[in-house]
Design a protein around this nucleic acid. Structure first.
Lengths: 208, 208
DNA sequence: CTCGAATCTGACGCCGCGTCACGATCAGAG
DNA sequence: CTCTGATCGTGACGCGGCGTCAGATTCGAG
């Protein structure tokens, strides 16, 4: 009974997982400090003490690391979204919970992630679409559709609706981060108001 | 009366203008065919018959060409937006005109610009902010503020409002382009409905 | 301990970038 | 028309980042 009945398994897989994480963490730092564009694969692996070749055992490119980072963000956000859904009572409640959760999440990430950027940086905002992000999208769309089915909101094109809600949330969220102080509540009030009112004004799918 | 009282001026400036345009046109094609990421400065310049050095007399990088292209788009859209503003009668009229104009513009660009892309391309959507685009943003925000001042709509945070309107328009517009057939009318109905209703549900800035 | 497989290492060749010395072309002065 | 300075075009060059691969190292099963 001396040795493992644990799960950390072999030493091999341990270092593998450790390296993955090390690369991801290093990438976060480097992207934060140098900006995505000017960061290089070698900048990243230098911080891990690994070699160039090792990097390519884990990721195929800088882009893929970035996607992994984004995917990770979405994965961490998902349970918050689910919690909002489960504790919601009706349409407005869901929207408010989800958006407040998202804005808090955003503000939080904002602090200990791009803590410091070189002053007047151009950040040519490269948009990505990861599997986990697609899952988040689907979850939102389905939740909205579900709530509409239950008659808590008028029935409208769920695809366009999800797109619009996410668009508003994302852009308002981003704008929010540029204001001082960062007030997630005010931003959430705005976004929720916009969406709730918006739904009321939308073209219906079927006769009500 | 045989020769110029025109404006083409010197031969020097003529070729200069011609080269600028040639590079821009070539860039449009190349970005459309190879995608932005994998396109190179040399791919672009090859189509113009110019030399590498010549390219750098006009633009500093591939990125700058892309910005010039985006700027050009915004510049061509601006008069349409202005027309929408001038022919509008009240808030909803303005919003509808502007959005319909934008969606038609989008659909039009979509046809003869990214006519053909390599099948399953990743397009890492590089977001850009050009001066002309900033001007469009300001114009929209000011128009909205103006209309609110006149009492045609409740007064709300104009910055957030402009961001939200643009976000909805852009994302719905993009989604619209992925549907077949492309129906700018349906999309516009949705976006306008969303915004008009949304404004009604927004937190007011002052007591009304 | 032995050996095969998994993993790491870093030098290498490739490719795109932006530059720069040189040559060609133009516009104005004489 | 010629001369001359200035402007613009040319392409070879050096730089730097990328992704690879043969060899070295480490792990773990037998």
């Amino acid at each position: 009974m001396s040795q493992v009945a644990y799960l950390p398994v072999g030493k091999r897989e341990q270092t593998k997982a450790a390296n993955r994480r090390a690369i991801l963490d290093a990438a976060r730092e480097v992207f934060g400090e140098l900006g995505y564009e000017s960061a290089t694969v070698r900048d990243i692996i230098r911080r891990t003490g690994l070699s160039v070749g090792a990097f390519y055992n884990y990721y195929r490119s800088k882009e893929e690391v970035f996607e992994a980072l984004a995917d990770d963000g979405a994965r961490r956000f998902r349970p918050l979204l689910r919690a909002a859904y489960e504790s919601a009572e009706g349409f407005e409640s869901y929207v408010r919970g989800a958006i407040q959760a998202y804005f808090d999440f955003l503000a939080d990430e904002h602090e200990n992630w791009q803590a410091r950027r070189p002053a007047g940086e151009r950040l040519p905002h490269t948009h990505v679409q990861t599997p986990e992000m697609a899952a988040v999208f689907d979850e939102i769309r389905d939740a909205l559709a579900e709530v509409m089915e239950r008659g808590d909101a008028p029935r409208v094109d769920p695809d366009y609706l999800a797109v619009a809600c996410i668009a508003v949330s994302r852009e308002i969220g981003e704008r929010m981060l540029q204001r001082r102080p960062i007030d997630t509540r005010v931003a959430a009030d705005f976004a929720v108001g916009m969406i709730m009112g918006g739904v009321a004004g939308l073209p219906r799918l079927y006769a009500d």
